[in-house]
Design a protein around this nucleic acid. Structure first.
Lengths: 224, 224
DNA sequence: CGGGAAGTTGAAGCCAGTCAAGATTTGTGG
DNA sequence: CCACAAATCTTGACTGGCTTCAACTTCCCG
């Protein structure tokens, strides 16, 4: 961005906002007047079904954009919830589109962000549809870990992991019990350790090989 | 669109193109100079894995937009292939962005299309992650059927279905055998008939109930 | 220190995968 | 127009990865 663009973007930032852990940010079906960029903290996107089951659609990290669906389609297709305390950059929806009409490059970035999410969901779908439990879990954790690296959340091989095993299970379409047992196997193989609050990836290369994963490529993306 | 907008859009249409059934339109990893809107015919989006398995990411119907990922991220994350003969409206990528800078409303539409795809993939992920085989198949077929209705491909309760059972299986993460047996059960229950080339939905309401699906809502979306 | 949430582990059962063979349809060359 | 081959669909039998059920342990936090 040029300095002028940054200034213009700043002008449309309504403010910042703190959210406590375990609090919903946007609910499924909501048509919020606000949009957010995550400044810090982590969260979850999920859908709830009538029978009480839950599908976690993605994990939310700093830099993520929240509320695009509501802006463009009129309502969110999933709920977004804070897993840790979060700080959000708040934009106003109406101003937002005014801003975009004036800055087509930002519209391009927005489309880019949507395309990145689409791409990720395609990969997630492939993991759920085609991979057995162990490679599926490896794929998910490696992907989160790579994303965390890009936003500097890692300390060497480790990163904060504020999610429960139940969350991971709900993301991957596995039962909690099987998820737990598979994580135990991974821990014993010394390739990866998931302990409460912390994920450590000891050998990404070996993990990729044992799980038959070609590569975990997190695409470059713009930040608003 | 206003008449002027239609005219401007027409100007950036490079031409039309016919594609034979079973021909790839855009390959995974490709960075095409062209974008397409489907005028007629049906296709598939899919990803291939190293072990030879295949995940079908979506079914392609008239009105669908192809090539957004390559435009914005530099490469396609999946392959798009024609299942029937198709006619495509061709746009040039470079001109395209020029056009969009001049017409922000079209940029809005593009983002909308990306958001619709993101929403669909979230629902597909939920189906694969949370639903057993029978409701999963019902969800997929009802969704395709509703989409087909919106573009007037249905004749009463029926629609052309150019895909094999193997395609459906690869879309839903099920084996061909189990897909076949589940389809047989649905046929016997008189709710739905899938025969080669033709899908007939006899009782959408009852299907939704037996499959525990709240509603199949295909969001409104712009067409370029 | 007590209670609730999260993590762990074992046992039993089932949904869906795999293997295998046959039936049906489609396409094609003689 | 027929005959053969290839692709797709169908069905049965067996197997196994994952789910469910259940109990126990560990970790927090008030």
């Amino acid at each position: 961005m040029t300095p002028e663009e940054v200034a213009a973007t700043q002008k449309f930032k309504v403010g910042e906002m703190s959210i406590a852990a375990r609090t919903p940010i946007l609910m499924e079906g909501a048509n919020s007047a606000q949009l957010f960029t995550v400044l810090s903290g982590m969260g979850l996107r999920y859908k709830l079904l009538a029978d009480g089951s839950r599908q976690i659609v993605n994990f939310v990290l700093p830099g993520d954009f929240i509320g695009l669906q509501a802006s463009v389609m009129g309502e969110m297709a999933h709920t977004v919830e804070a897993s840790t305390d979060m700080r959000l950059c708040v934009f106003d929806r109406t101003e937002f589109w005014t801003f975009f009409r004036a800055h087509p490059e930002r519209a391009y970035d927005l489309t880019w962000l949507a395309a990145v999410e689409e791409r990720f969901l395609g990969e997630a779908l492939t993991a759920l549809g085609q991979r057995p439990a162990l490679p599926r879990i490896v794929w998910a954790l490696l992907t989160i870990w790579e994303r965390a690296r890009l936003v500097d959340l890692t300390e060497g091989p480790s990163m904060p992991f504020p999610w429960r095993q139940q969350d991971l299970a709900d993301a991957l379409g596995l039962s909690l019990v099987h998820t737990n047992k598979t994580l135990a196997r991974l821990r014993q193989s010394q390739l990866l350790t998931l302990s409460p609050g912390k994920l450590t990836v000891h050998d990404p290369e070996a993990l990729r090989r044992t799980a038959g994963i070609e590569e975990v490529e997190v695409p470059q993306r713009p930040i608003l």
